[in-house]
Nucleic acid binder design. Structure first.
Lengths: 215, 215
DNA sequence: ACGATTATCGAACGAGGTTCGATGATAGAA
DNA sequence: TTCTATCATCGAACCTCGTTCGATAATCGT
């Protein structure tokens, strides 16, 4: 079981979600497809289990963080840690987005984040909403940004600079009267950094939260 | 072409993302699979085109909204409109999350949202981040919440009440010392409303944005 | 020794994406 | 009118993937 999960995560890391097939997994483990089905009832469960396995790592990373006297600062650190983990393993997004099955390591992760909100002057409902909002920002942004890699990664000779620049050029060529915003934003987009963009989004919700907590 | 897209959207609406297959689409159109490949080079393009088609509808809905003297209020209305549209058509999330190809109707949608930020006292970069943050909240939350429907919809006899209650019960049964947050939140979760949860998350970012704009 | 449980295996089925060559329409050129 | 190049249509066939199933070994409690 442990070996199955480890191999599954390895496949996901090496070549993404589409690389995780029963046959590939069986080949890597040197067994048959049927064997995997003895441990796991279908692909969804395989994926969920593998993902939960990976989230265990994130959890220990989050738990290993020092922690300060400012709950919101701690929330920020946790959110960033989660973000980095998802960027590193884009296939995690699918889990966070599909999984209603809130238990296992992800439940512990929610708990860990939620504990920070206990230190804020909020109603239980506000705490519930705060955690959901923060996770939403992290997953939403990470997913959005993680998708921006078509040939760039495969070819390698088309670097990020040129890739973004091409879009910016297209946008600049649009009618300035009809597309004033896109026009103005083109330059920002050309030189934008995903992580900075995420941090900005996170900062907005955290600011709202701080306001709500009256601190 | 137009007929292909309309039929594709119909299939997606009727039975979700998995229902959109080349064979089903061909059958509905009374043609062969090969014909569809003449209009579209692969499934990704088919899906993107169909989704863009649907986003056209959202766009007109957003453009049809009156608009007030408060840019942030207008942003709220747009975000809610987008949210409702995605909840209504869960298969849209996949598009918003995978699609780097920012053009067509979704570009116009970004523009429309971005124009509100032009009325706020922000730097171009802040505007760029604001739009990205808002869309992130909408898509992230909508995706998160849209996934919570396993047997509930299919069986029909297990209603939402009981479904949520079961989770709440599990959470309450956890150790209160180890899971103080989840414990406290269980009741909120049992009676929670998806839309309210989204509005709370949106309100946090909008509050942060208002703060940033100094209005 | 022996049933029962635990594990293993891979051929085979069905569904879905994609390819490809054949074939018909349609229209401008000769 | 005839010819030919482009537009459009079609579905059989191929490949990959999830999943099933019956056969078979390995281990164990009695």
């Amino acid at each position: 079981m442990e070996a199955v999960l480890t191999a599954a995560v390895a496949l996901l890391d090496e070549a993404g979600e589409s690389a995780l097939t029963f046959r590939a997994l069986a080949a890597r483990l040197g067994t048959g497809v049927g064997t995997i089905y003895w441990y796991v009832s279908n692909k969804d469960e395989l994926f969920d289990r593998a993902t939960d396995h990976a989230i265990g790592g994130i959890l220990t990373a989050v738990e290993g963080q020092p922690g300060s006297d400012d709950p919101i600062a701690d929330l920020r650190v946790m959110a960033v840690t989660l973000f980095d983990a998802i960027v590193d393993r884009p296939w995690l997004t699918a889990y966070f987005m599909r999984n209603t099955d809130v238990q296992g390591h992800s439940l512990r992760l929610y708990e860990k984040i939620g504990q920070q909100t206990l230190r804020l002057d909020l109603t239980p409902r506000q705490r519930f909403h705060a955690v959901s909002a923060i996770v939403g920002v992290v997953v939403g942004t990470a997913a959005d940004l993680g998708a921006e890699i078509p040939q760039e990664l495969l070819d390698g000779h088309v670097d990020r600079e040129e890739f973004l620049g091409r879009y910016a050029a297209t946008w600049r060529s649009l009618d300035a009267a009809e597309f004033p915003f896109v026009h103005q934003i083109a330059d920002e987009f050309a030189g934008h950094d995903d992580r900075e963009q995420f941090l900005a989004a996170l900062e907005l919700t955290l600011a709202g939260l701080r306001l709500q907590a009256g601190t």
